[in-house]
Structure formats: structure tokens, C-alpha cells
Design a binder for these strands. Sequence first.
DNA 1: CGAGATGTTGAGACATGTCAAGAATTGTGG
DNA 2: CCACAATTCTTGACATGTCTCAACATCTCG
Lengths: 237, 237
Amino acid sequence: MIRKLESIFVLTDDERQALETLPMQVVAIKENQDLVRAGDRPSRSCLVLSGFACTYKMTVQGKRQIVSFNLPGDIPDLQSLHLRVLDNGISTISPCRVGFIRHEALRDICDRYPRIASAFWRETLIDASIFREWVLNVGQREAYTRMAHVLCELLTRLGAVGLTQDHSCNLPITQSEFADALGATTVHVNRVLQQMRADGLIELKGDRLNIPDWEKLKRVGEFDPTYLHLEDYQAAA
Amino acid sequence: MIRKLESIFVLTDDERQALETLPMQVVAIKENQDLVRAGDRPSRSCLVLSGFACTYKMTVQGKRQIVSFNLPGDIPDLQSLHLRVLDNGISTISPCRVGFIRHEALRDICDRYPRIASAFWRETLIDASIFREWVLNVGQREAYTRMAHVLCELLTRLGAVGLTQDHSCNLPITQSEFADALGATTVHVNRVLQQMRADGLIELKGDRLNIPDWEKLKRVGEFDPTYLHLEDYQAAA
DNA sequence: CGAGATGTTGAGACATGTCAAGAATTGTGG
DNA sequence: CCACAATTCTTGACATGTCTCAACATCTCG
């Protein structure tokens, strides 16, 4: 988290100190475990330290829509700091290490360091931006493009936290999880992935994803990373 | 806007005074005009004073996805306060009165009144929550349910700012705009609406929407207003 | 080695898209 | 206040992306 914030602006010693000493309960959690559920009124937020998680919502009929993937450095329920009731669940996808931070501690640090408060606010705004892009993705693109787009996003965001090597990465996401993220069927995701392999767009085996031709994947996925708002990170780098 | 904030918490005289004197350039704008475009780096945010607007994104192939409707009281690009580049456009749907507020003015009021800053943050979090629900809606529900859901949301949000009479309201939204919001075709939206009329779910003629059986529409649309986070408003009322 | 999860395949069904045309409504200038 | 143009709405026939179901293959891991 510090690393993420640090890439937005230069932390003062005080600010860094405050962030580093932020009291946090670190827990190791297996895959497919809910961190929080819709309807909860949490008094703490969770910081993903390692592993993949996802934010999801359920239909009355029990269909699941993953609305975003949560990667290391993300605080997927930072919103609960200002919204009493959670309207979504958060579940691990792979085994994770998660840091739970009490809201009081977050409020305290926000009160004392306005720039940190702004940075947190900004993080939630980027989340919102990603949701917007997902609405577009799910609403207007066909499954093949949609899949390519999500892969581009994942690779880009993983890259931003140093979890890619060249254009490959660890990707412990199941086809049925992709299905829930794309608003598609497992069967259909399977076929789309095979087509993408056949087209030389991706090499995907087990947990390992490699992108032979990044520019091509971006083109196919209509991927423009503006919505991730990494520009400031890069400006800082 | 004041009214919306006021329903969250009791403003002090100072806070109210600050909000009321917030310098704002009020402009009347025709329908189908962009207020801002993707790629802009605005130095002000817009407050919808009257009329309907929408936030949208475009596909490379020129397909439009409306990601939210902006109703009176909304500040659809409040995010630009902390994100340099806009990743979406905002367009009027009906003729609107819009107040443009400079970012400096917003920053200033946030600095001086932390509770107002929190309330603004909260507004953007509710926007994000709505986006999440839309991802679910577009990703997992079929068009009929989806339409019912969007109508429920509109009616509820309009009700929250006093723009409904009983269960009817003014709704200057075109079928093709609904299509862009649902990720569906105009033709299909037309058929869905006719079916809903036939089923006695809605009475929709021109700009006028009436809901004969609100509970039924909510049921059909799988509508649970939790995600709008009006609970505090009601608590305050 | 076996069990459960995950991935793969095929055939048929259905929701929704496409195209194309005509009807109804709305706004506007004469 | 009419007439025309431009939207918006409606309808039909057909195409297609995606789903459903159901079986089987493969992998992972205790």
C-alpha cells in the first residue's frame, strides 16, 4: 500500500511513519473464502497483501458477478469507511495474506494527514473508474474482446505493483471465475480462451499467463489504460 | 446539492454558508450536449441543477455505453478533483441547468470543512456503488429484468430529491438512450418496454412514467435499494 | 490412487442483434 | 396554425452470439 501511495506523491517522513505504523491485523486466508459479505457493517477495511481476491455481487437467482479483481496493494472495501452497509461481497480467489485495518485507525490517519486522506479518496475514485470500464466492457463488447480486455487490465495492474515478468505473470484465476467476471458462461469462456490461444494472443497454462504480442492483445481488447489512472505513477517514476 | 448533503448530516451555519456561497457559474444547456469529454483535464466540476444527464463511455467501434444517469443534485465529475484525466464523457439528455464549480473552490471548501470533504467523498463512493450494481445488472440479468431494475433505480433516486409524484415521474429518456444504458439494442428495448406495458408493470408515454404496482416492479427488477445508500438520508429524515 | 475441482467437447435452444421499412410524434419555419 | 423534416417508435424476418445440458477428460493434491 505504501508503495502504491508513494508512487503518487513523495511521502514526508511523518506520513511514511504514520503509514508504516498503521496497526493492522495480518491473517493468512485460504482461497474461496469470504473476507466480507454484502450486508455487513464492517468496522475495518482489508488490505490485500498477497494473492488474488475479487469483489462480487449476487443476483436474486444466485448468479455471481465479479465486479473487480483485487490485487496486492488494493483495499477493496475502503468504501466502508464512509458507507455503513456493504453492498458487495469480497472473496479470496487464491490463498491470500490480508491486513485488517480498523476504521478508527484509518480515520485517525486521514484526520492527521490530509494528503493521505486525498490519496485514499483517489484510490476509491480509481476503483470507480474501473467499474465504469467494466460496465462498458460487459455491456458493449463481445466475449472475445471482453476477455482480452480483462487480461490487459490484469497484466497492467499487476505490472504496476511489480508482479509481472516481461509480459507474463501468475494468474490463479479459474475459467469459471473469468466467466463470472465477464458475465459469460464457463463453457463460453473456455471456447474463447481456446480461440485466443489458437490466434496466438495468449499462452495460458495452469496459473501461468504469457502474452506473446502485447500490442496485439491491447488492440484486440480495445485496451486503453487511461482509466487505470497510472499516469501520475509514471510521472512520479 | 445542499439539500442532498443536508440529508446526510446536520450542517452547521458555517458549513451551510460556505456551500451556499460556493462560486458557481450557472449555464442553461440544450439536450444532447457534451458537458465534458473523455480525455479532458477539467479545472471545474459540474453540478446538475435541473434536467437529466448521463455519464458514458465509447467503444473503439463507436458504440456508446451509458454508465449512469445523472439527476438533479448530482456532481457527475466530482472525481476530476483527484483524477487528472477524465475517462468518460458526460452529456445532457434533456435540457439542463448546470452549475460549474472550480476545483480550487471545491478544494478550498474541503480544506476548511472536513465534514463536507467527507460528504463529497461519500457521494463518489455511492457513484461507485451504483457502477457495481450496473456491472451486475448488465452482466447477469436479462433485458427485461435489467430494464425493470433501471426504472426502479431512477424512480428511487428521483424520489430522493423530490422529483416523483406518488409512483410517477418525468422521464425524458429515449428508448435508444435506454438501449445504451442497458447494453441492448433500440429494437430490443422497444420490445421489452411493450412487454412490460402489456404486463401492467409500467405506463410510459412520452416523458411520463407511471408505476401502477411498485412492489411488483421491484420484484421483477430484483431491486434492492441498499446500494444507493439512502439509509442515512432516511435516518436523518 | 482416488476424489474433487477444473477444463473440454458437442448438439440444440434461446435471447438478443441486424437490417430494413414504415408509423407516430415532435419541433420548427413560413 | 399548418406543413415539412427530423427524431423517435414500432414491426417483421432472419442471423448469430451465447447459453444449456450433459458427458467426458484432465489436473491437483491428500
